[in-house]
Design a protein around this nucleic acid. Structure first.
Lengths: 199, 199, 199, 199
DNA sequence: TATGAATGAGTATTCATTCAT
DNA sequence: GATGAATGAATACTCATTCAT
């Protein structure tokens, strides 16, 4: 990646996340990047390819924590109970969101309008992550730490809660003073009690 | 609203929700609506005004359930416990989402890119709804039915869960066979147990 | 055809014939036509469509003299001998070339680069004209007025000579003083003697 | 000429003859030649110069058979009658066309759009060749082997016929099975009889 | 000598918007 | 009120050409 290429990507991320893909013009990106418009197209055949070059690698990183070979072993070794497991992924994804927020924003906005992006997401992300996540859910259900609900339902409830936190934290109220550790505690407790086996 | 106007709005909703506002062209809307291009601009000064004419009324409807004068009285009269309250708004918003799904989709996609829309939302929706919602939360906290967390946190946890359900239902997996009543039960129980005062 | 549309076509003919299709820009055409660039594309979806709208009707006119139903009857009734037949088509095509010279020029230059144009030409023009032409050749061969060569060879020799005349007249030396009747006489005599049955 | 330069010229000939000069891009030529884009411009200052470097030498070769010093002597010594003369140039130009067909095609397509090319052609080719050709025509007229027509007219009739043959052979129907010797015979006989002094 | 990244003017085409009918 | 022809600025993208390496 040349120096100019990096500048192009940075400018594109900034502008895409601010105005959306369709609302951004390559001329504006070129200007912000300080390069000629033609330079963009030397590196990326189309505007869309530029978008993909930004968004695709993010997808890979998104699923990184689940891309371990022997997931069951990791579960057993590292996470004696659900709480620690949930806390780990929450903190981990919080940092991920903090770092890649603009790209994630672009991704979430564009995915409904680009069937190819959606397909790629389903194939790589969804299948891998869901498989692992369901495994984890059943793992903790078997240990009596989670209520016996269908895995997809459990998954939905957990995901909603964590995503809801991230959206509130970075999208809706990024400027509020956040006591992050406390909010994380509350969020995780909410999940734990919400999904605890009914006595 | 003339017959043509209705067709324009219908076409616009369809196309905006499919391609996004910036990705849609007025000529395409005119074509789908079966009117001349100029006709759109006779009724709406700009493309943006057409968007607002679609999205703004939806906002009003969105907050309708909270736009009652004596909210406390309603709470006391109609909802003896949290469960019935939560169930009522969940079912109610589920129907709302089912009915206005495309418009809601447009709204959620465009709000980050239109500061005026965002402002309008904050002023009308957020303030009114939040005020009422916080009131309800404190109401049930006072009755010992909800754990004593800050209202915004409680609000976030409830909203995440309900929105998560709606998103899963209509956006992510609209084609799956949904046993809606069961899923609603599980969702509400999740919230109730998650927010029950710790014994 | 609106007034502007006529101006666009006129300008396009002029510029295409001067610089070739690929060497002409739509902006230049718009300027010469005195219309906005967008106006061109309201009437013709693409630059290529503009080209076709110019060139296609010419093809139809080109074959007009051969598009008679009962060609044999026409031959028998109107042309007692080859000479009169040849003279008729030569004069006729001369006038045609004089009238449509720029369009013919465009056509001949572009046909090698547009397979669709070539195909259309083969289907409509070539098949119809060749069929009729071969019929005429055999007609006059049967009457002993033309040497017994294969029709395609005879056709080639006649066509070369007439086209050669038209090219010299309009393309190579348009500015020379031409004694047209005399040159036509010489040209036709050349063909007649060249194809007379050897005694 | 370096190895790369040869490849550039070969690629350029191929692409120019396929798409026309204006329709070809230097990048495509570079790609097909297997060199960097810049390399083309190291050898040829502009795209046009590349065209000229291809087309100009062909012009010289085109007139080669006429570029003999004592043309009259050659006529007397080598060609006892018109037939042999015509046959010689026909066969000779046939081979030339076979060998340089793509370049000839480029040349004929571009000459109307490049005044400088046209000028160069008129100066070198036309004047020299015409002078010699007229000399030959008058030579054979004086010997009673050609009808007494103005030399330009005679020249036109001969040239049309031979070019017509070449065009049919290589451009219009290159894939047909050609019995070349027979067609040459017919073509030359056509000219001979067409231009024989009327008895 | 050859490269290929970089340029910026230029390309065909689309767009939201206007306006005479 | 409705039309659709007309606009011209803007769009994504291509081009011939330059130049530092």
């Amino acid at each position: 990646m040349t120096d100019k290429q990096i500048k192009i990507v940075q400018a594109a991320v900034e502008i895409f996340s601010e105005k959306g893909f369709a609302g951004s013009s390559t001329s504006e990106i070129a200007q912000k990047a300080g390069v000629a418009e033609g330079t963009i197209f030397r590196h990326y055949k189309t505007k869309k390819e530029l978008l993909l070059s930004i968004v695709a690698p993010m997808m890979t990183k998104l699923i990184a924590p689940f891309a371990v070979k022997d997931f069951t072993k990791v579960l057993e070794a590292d996470y004696p109970d659900v709480e620690q497991f949930l806390r780990a992924i929450t903190v981990n994804r919080l940092e991920f969101a903090r770092k890649h927020f603009p790209v994630i924003k672009i991704f979430m906005h564009e995915i409904p309008f680009h069937p190819d992006l959606r397909e790629q997401f389903k194939e790589t992300v969804a299948s891998l992550v869901l498989e692992k996540a369901y495994k984890a859910i059943r793992h903790f259900q078997a240990r009596g730490q989670l209520i016996e609900l269908p895995a997809p339902t459990t998954m939905r409830l957990i995901t909603s809660t964590i995503f809801g936190f991230l959206i509130a934290r970075f999208l809706l109220l990024p400027d509020r003073e956040w006591n992050e550790t406390e909010e994380i505690d509350r969020t995780i407790n909410f999940i734990l009690y919400g999904l605890a086996p009914r006595s």
